[in-house]
Computed example of a mutant assay.
Amino acid sequence: MLKEKLKDYLGFAVAGNFAGHLGEAGEADEFSVIKTKDKNEPKGLFPFYIKDHDSFLKTYPICTNTIYTHQRENDKIQAEPELALICDFVYKNEKLIDITPKYFSAFNDCSLRVQNGDKLSTKKNWGIKTKGISEDIIEIDNFTEDGILSKYHISSFIKRDGKLHNYGTISAVKSYSYFFTQLKNWIIDKFNTQEDCGPLEEITQFMKKANEAKGILIASGATAYSEFGKKNYLKNDDELFIYVYNARKYSHQDIINNIDSTIKLDECSKLHQVIKS
């Protein structure tokens, strides 16, 4: 199964790669200390899973069908609908030389919203089954604007008490602040140069056993929330749906019609998770 294979991958995510998300997540003040060269540039990278690390990061958090709150509902848990890039990489002389996105999938970078001044990574992995990835993995033909990802959109929904709500805004993958070659080059630079600042950590400390990893999973950044998503945190028995789909083939209504269906759509990555304590 996919989730077993990813146990041998490093897990990192991009912070602040969608306009407005940090403010909606209540994290804008914490990130205000981080200055970027470009106003649209993401704020940085953070780890959510490092195999064999001597901290909470060694806990494998990814699941394909469940999110466990671990009784932390008071810390205001929000799903983060986004795109996962499953990547090969080259690491030599303690430097990331290259990274190649090979596959993509719907991803839930679920997060605690507790405002305690700790590093962002501490809010991203609080035990097993606290992240989500779809089993529907799609191969990337080439990671440029000419590739298939230019056709794909991200949509997300919460079903609560039998009623369906839009959770995140409908977002084109190519509307990420940084994507394709610009994101790739930025990721390589951040792996090699990011320093400890505010909610983010120096990255090279997490790469000591990089050559033992089979790849790197990069969560590209969360979309903006709908009005419901802004105001509602996850509750037990909620059902979360995240779709990454070819928007030239499917309408938003087509995706809604598929939510309760067992029919698997082609050119579509669907993540369905139930929230449990």
Rank of each mutant, 00 (worst) to 15 (best):
I259Y: 00
K276F: 05
D136C: 06
L271F: 05
F48D: 01
D29V: 13
I154A: 06
V90F: 07
A213H: 14
A79I: 03
K102T: 10
K159P: 04
K235H: 09
F191G: 05
N74P: 01
E139Q: 08
F46N: 02
N74V: 04
C197L: 12
D88M: 06
L183N: 09
F143I: 00
T59H: 11
E135L: 06
I148M: 13
Q71E: 13
V274L: 08
I62C: 01
S269F: 00
A247V: 00
L149Q: 05
G16W: 00
K131P: 05
E239I: 15
L2D: 07
E139T: 09
K5N: 11
I50P: 04
Y176V: 02
L240F: 15
F31P: 06
L265T: 00
L6P: 01
P101S: 10
N258C: 10
T122G: 04
S277A: 11
Q273V: 05
Y178M: 07
A224S: 14
L271Y: 02
I154H: 06
K190L: 14
H153T: 12
S105L: 01
A210F: 15
P42S: 03
S155F: 02
K190F: 11
I158L: 05
G221F: 02
I62T: 06
D29L: 11
L85N: 01
N108F: 02
N232W: 06
Y91R: 08
N116D: 14
I255A: 04
G198H: 10
P101W: 03
C197D: 13
M207F: 15
I77S: 03
P81W: 07
A224V: 07
T144Y: 04
D38G: 03
